[in-house]
Design a binder for these strands. Sequence first.
DNA 1: GTCTATACAGTGATAGAC
DNA 2: GTCTATCACTGTATAGAC
Lengths: 200, 200
Amino acid sequence: MTHSTAGGRTRGAKADAAQGKRARLTAAAAQVLHEQGVEKTTLADIARAADVPVGNVYYYFKTKDDLVEAAIGTHGDTLRAVLATLDELPEPRDRLKHLVRGWVDQRDLAARYGCPTGTLASELDKRADGLDEKLAVHLRALVDWVAHQFRAMGHRRDARELAVALVAAYQGISLLTNTFRDPDLMAAEGRRLQRWLDTL
Amino acid sequence: MTHSTAGGRTRGAKADAAQGKRARLTAAAAQVLHEQGVEKTTLADIARAADVPVGNVYYYFKTKDDLVEAAIGTHGDTLRAVLATLDELPEPRDRLKHLVRGWVDQRDLAARYGCPTGTLASELDKRADGLDEKLAVHLRALVDWVAHQFRAMGHRRDARELAVALVAAYQGISLLTNTFRDPDLMAAEGRRLQRWLDTL
DNA sequence: GTCTATACAGTGATAGAC
DNA sequence: GTCTATCACTGTATAGAC
């Protein structure tokens, strides 16, 4: 993560290009790693998707793990942005229902490649490096946010348990939706969760 | 799968050894693939775990995929055995509750390596070969069996939806239990599912 | 800063001795 | 049937030209 050299001299063109390539590599990594999995994805795959020469990747990222870590970072950014939008809704119940709706809206992607965060978490767990913990932080932030909503709905004692259950329901249905290649499974489970939220 | 040559001549010693090694390799594959993941596991890893020389593996399995397929087969065998035991219970509700109990009993394993079937399904999905469908068959068999129990409990219309939800709940909590390395998550969700089953 | 050529390690798979 | 030696290939990473 380079510090923003605000008002730096005329390093404009080159630095912008560098920023552009770095950003492109990060975005490409997030997408390709989701579609192909971490282990099956080569640096050449990511470089090709980002339209950057293979050997040049190492100027921006020292190792493949650094690239994976960057992808994890974008997951965190995306999550934060989603939650910030949901926070604008006045009712905590509506926030949760819109969260579920967002999941259902992505059911086709889940059917093809699974939940971006979930499949990545599953893979990172098998690796020796501590990258899995970096992703766990973001997943934990989601659970915390959901628990906060349940608490605001009056569930003092079991808010966290309900939060875990809701996120788990999504992760589980993502896996089944993916395994059976059937987006309708996600849609049906979404409706069930909506009804469930209405009863709480 | 070799047919059992019942009463064959004195091919005892050699064939038994072969059977023994093949069985050992299959068992080792199922375990190591679960612990390390498919991509990170080398044939050398499996051979070592089975106490078989590396190059000799190819006498029993032509390719690595064949070994993975054998591991998938043991997943199917295990599942069938579990369901057969549960079928001995008279009440369908008790069958489901015992199924959940069995999951909870394995929470330590799930915390370390995730659900054996779920993590494998997630990984196989990223591969080009059609191995993911072979595993999907077994997962579908589980969903079918659960749906059958719900139907026996009087849930004519939404038995399948409930079945998908129950299996998904398990898969999801397995992933969170694994990501957060916290078996208590599985225990709490197990209690919640038990209560839920009691209300249906 | 950008890119090419290449070193180096690891892996699946085969040939062939025993 | 069992095992050793080795091949062919792929992928990460580096050195260094431009």
